[in-house]
């Protein structure tokens, strides 16, 4: 069969979501016991999506990061974006980030609002642990 016209993103995801989903930069986890690492986890209803973000802090800023995600492409993209964005940020900057910022950065649609919340929750969870 001949080929139909193809484009890079056949499913209508935003360009940012599509790129981060496919490349998933910073996917993974630090070796257990790595110094200065704080992890935050969030999951949505019935665990259809789970996001785990790991931040390594040094001198009050994020020196390195990793994420893992189980969920739709937007969830995976949110994890990848958070991990990349947090690099070099201060804790105060991390605290100021909300779901709306994630949505604006990744340009996902209304029906994916929960993916932004998942990102916000995972980050908050990490920051709570940091406080403790």
């Amino acid at each position: 069969m001949a080929q139909p016209s193809t484009d890079a993103n056949p499913f209508g995801y935003s360009e940012a979501v599509w790129r981060l989903f496919n490349q998933a930069p910073r996917a993974g986890a630090f070796a257990p016991g790595t110094a200065g690492v704080v992890a935050g986890t969030a999951q949505s209803n019935a665990a259809h999506a789970v996001l785990r973000i790991e931040l390594q802090l040094a001198g009050g800023r994020v020196a390195d990061s990793r994420f893992r995600a189980y969920g739709c492409p937007t969830t995976i993209a949110v994890g990848a974006w958070l991990a990349g964005w947090s690099l070099g940020r201060t804790v105060a900057e991390l605290r100021a980030l909300g779901a709306a910022d994630l949505r604006a950065a990744l340009e996902f649609s209304d029906d994916r609002a929960h993916c932004g919340l998942l990102g916000e929750d995972a980050l908050r969870n990490a920051l709570e642990k940091l406080q403790r």
């Binding site: 069969m1 001949a2 080929q3 139909p4 016209s5 193809t6 056949p10 499913f11």
Partner: peptide, 16 residues
């Protein structure tokens, strides 16, 4: 004649 899909399919053929 050509490559075409079922418009309800989400893959490229369907989207065309």
């Amino acid at each position: 004649t050509g490559p075409y899909g079922n418009p309800s399919s989400v893959h490229r053929y369907g989207r065309a």
